Amino acid sequence: PDEFRDPLMDTLMTDPVRLPSGTIMDRSIILRHLLNSPTDPFNRQTLTESMLEPVPELKEQIQAWMREKQN
């Protein structure tokens, strides 16, 4: 489902985090971005790792969907 895909890389998220802007991304992708630029890739506001907020409900939904697909 589209809501499980990272908006920057269009890959399935495994550890979704919410940026201060409200955008949800995969943690590994935003951390890689932050190594090059300490900004939100969508609005260029300053962004640090400590500002990332886990989204455990979405992570659980993704994991359940993945388990379902394996069966």
Rank of each mutant, 00 (worst) to 15 (best):
P1D: 08
P1N: 14
P1Y: 09
P1H: 09
D2K: 13
D2G: 13
D2P: 14
D2L: 10
D2N: 11
D2C: 11
E3W: 05
E3P: 07
E3Q: 07
E3A: 10
E3T: 08
E3Y: 10
E3G: 02
E3V: 08
E3L: 07
E3M: 10
F4R: 09
F4V: 01
F4Y: 14
F4C: 03
F4W: 08
F4N: 02
R5G: 06
R5K: 09
R5C: 03
R5V: 12
D6E: 04
D6L: 00
D6A: 10
D6C: 01
P7V: 02
P7D: 07
P7A: 11
P7R: 04
P7N: 04
P7F: 03
P7G: 02
L8W: 06
L8Q: 06
L8K: 05
L8Y: 06
L8P: 08
L8M: 10
L8V: 12
L8S: 02
L8E: 05
L8G: 05
M9K: 15
M9I: 05
M9E: 15
D10Q: 09
D10V: 02
D10E: 10
D10H: 06
D10L: 05
D10G: 14
D10F: 05
D10C: 08
D10S: 08
D10A: 10
D10T: 00
D10M: 09
T11L: 05
T11G: 04
T11D: 05
T11P: 05
T11K: 07
T11M: 06
T11C: 10
L12H: 04
L12Q: 07
L12I: 14
L12N: 05
M13I: 13
M13V: 07
M13L: 03
M13P: 03
M13F: 05
T14G: 07
T14L: 12
T14P: 04
T14W: 06
T14S: 13
D15M: 00
D15E: 08
D15G: 01
D15Y: 01
D15N: 09
D15R: 03
D15P: 02
D15W: 04
D15H: 02
P16Q: 07
P16H: 00
P16G: 02
P16C: 03
P16L: 05
P16T: 06
P16I: 12
P16A: 00
V17L: 00
V17T: 03
V17F: 12
V17C: 08
V17K: 00
R18W: 12
R18E: 06
R18F: 06
R18N: 15
R18V: 02
R18Y: 01
R18D: 08
L19R: 01
L19P: 01
L19G: 01
L19A: 01
P20G: 02
P20H: 06
P20M: 00
P20E: 00
P20N: 03
P20S: 00
S21P: 02
S21L: 03
S21M: 02
S21N: 10
S21E: 02
G22S: 02
G22R: 01
G22D: 03
G22N: 08
G22M: 01
G22I: 02
T23C: 12
T23S: 09
T23L: 12
T23Q: 15
T23N: 15
T23M: 10
T23R: 14
T23E: 07
I24D: 02
I24Q: 07
I24S: 01
I24R: 04
M25R: 08
M25W: 02
M25E: 06
R27Q: 00
R27K: 14
R27W: 00
R27M: 00
R27L: 02
R27G: 01
R27T: 08
R27V: 02
S28I: 12
S28M: 12
S28Q: 14
S28R: 13
S28E: 14
I29M: 03
I29F: 03
I29Q: 11
I29W: 05
I29N: 10
I29S: 14
I29H: 08
I29A: 09
I30V: 13
I30K: 00
I30Q: 03
L31A: 14
L31Y: 07
L31T: 14
L31F: 04
L31C: 12
L31H: 10
R32N: 12
R32M: 14
R32F: 05
R32S: 12
R32E: 15
R32G: 11
H33M: 12
H33Q: 08
H33C: 09
H33L: 06
L34N: 05
L34W: 06
L34E: 05
L34P: 06
L35I: 14
L35M: 13
L35D: 15
L35G: 14
L35V: 13
L35W: 08
L35H: 15
L35E: 15
N36K: 13
N36V: 11
N36P: 00
N36D: 11
N36M: 11
N36S: 15
N36L: 10
S37L: 05
S37A: 09
S37P: 03
S37V: 05
P38M: 04
P38N: 15
P38T: 12
P38Y: 06
P38K: 15
P38F: 15
T39W: 09
T39K: 11
T39S: 10
T39A: 08
T39F: 14
T39V: 12
T39R: 10
D40F: 04
D40V: 06
D40T: 01
D40G: 00
D40E: 07
P41F: 01
P41L: 00
P41M: 00
F42G: 06
F42A: 08
F42P: 04
F42Q: 07
F42H: 04
F42T: 05
N43I: 00
R44W: 06
R44Q: 15
R44I: 00
R44P: 03
R44G: 15
R44N: 15
Q45W: 07
Q45P: 07
Q45V: 12
Q45T: 15
Q45L: 07
T46I: 10
T46M: 14
T46E: 13
T46F: 15
T46W: 15
T46G: 13
T46P: 14
T46Q: 07
T46D: 12
L47W: 02
L47A: 04
L47R: 00
L47S: 02
L47V: 07
T48K: 10
T48E: 13
T48N: 15
T48S: 13
T48R: 12
T48W: 05
T48L: 09
E49M: 03
E49S: 12
E49K: 10
E49T: 14
E49N: 15
S50I: 01
S50R: 13
S50K: 09
S50L: 05
S50M: 11
S50D: 12
M51D: 15
M51Q: 09
M51L: 09
L52K: 05
L52C: 06
L52G: 00
L52S: 04
L52F: 03
L52I: 04
E53T: 12
E53W: 02
E53R: 10
E53S: 07
E53V: 14
E53A: 11
E53G: 03
E53K: 13
P54K: 00
P54E: 13
P54Q: 05
V55M: 09
V55S: 05
V55C: 10
V55K: 04
V55R: 02
V55Y: 05
P56L: 04
P56Q: 07
P56D: 04
P56Y: 06
P56V: 08
E57T: 08
E57S: 09
E57V: 10
E57W: 13
L58Q: 10
L58V: 07
L58S: 06
L58Y: 02
L58G: 06
L58W: 08
K59V: 08
K59T: 06
K59R: 04
E60L: 12
E60R: 09
Q61C: 08
Q61T: 07
Q61L: 07
Q61W: 00
Q61F: 10
Q61K: 14
Q61A: 13
I62A: 05
I62K: 02
Q63D: 13
Q63R: 11
Q63V: 12
Q63P: 04
Q63A: 11
Q63E: 12
A64Q: 13
A64R: 13
A64L: 10
A64C: 12
A64G: 12
A64T: 10
W65H: 15
W65R: 09
W65Q: 09
W65D: 12
W65E: 07
W65M: 08
W65Y: 05
W65C: 06
W65A: 06
M66K: 13
M66Q: 13
M66D: 09
M66E: 15
M66F: 12
M66R: 10
R67W: 09
R67L: 14
R67Y: 12
R67M: 08
R67P: 06
R67V: 13
E68K: 11
E68T: 10
E68Q: 14
E68F: 09
E68P: 06
E68I: 02
E68H: 09
E68C: 07
E68V: 12
K69E: 11
K69V: 10
K69R: 13
K69W: 05
K69Q: 14
K69D: 10
K69A: 09
Q70W: 05
Q70K: 15
Q70C: 13
Q70F: 06
Q70Y: 03
N71L: 12
N71T: 12
N71K: 12
N71F: 14
N71H: 13
N71Q: 14
N71P: 15
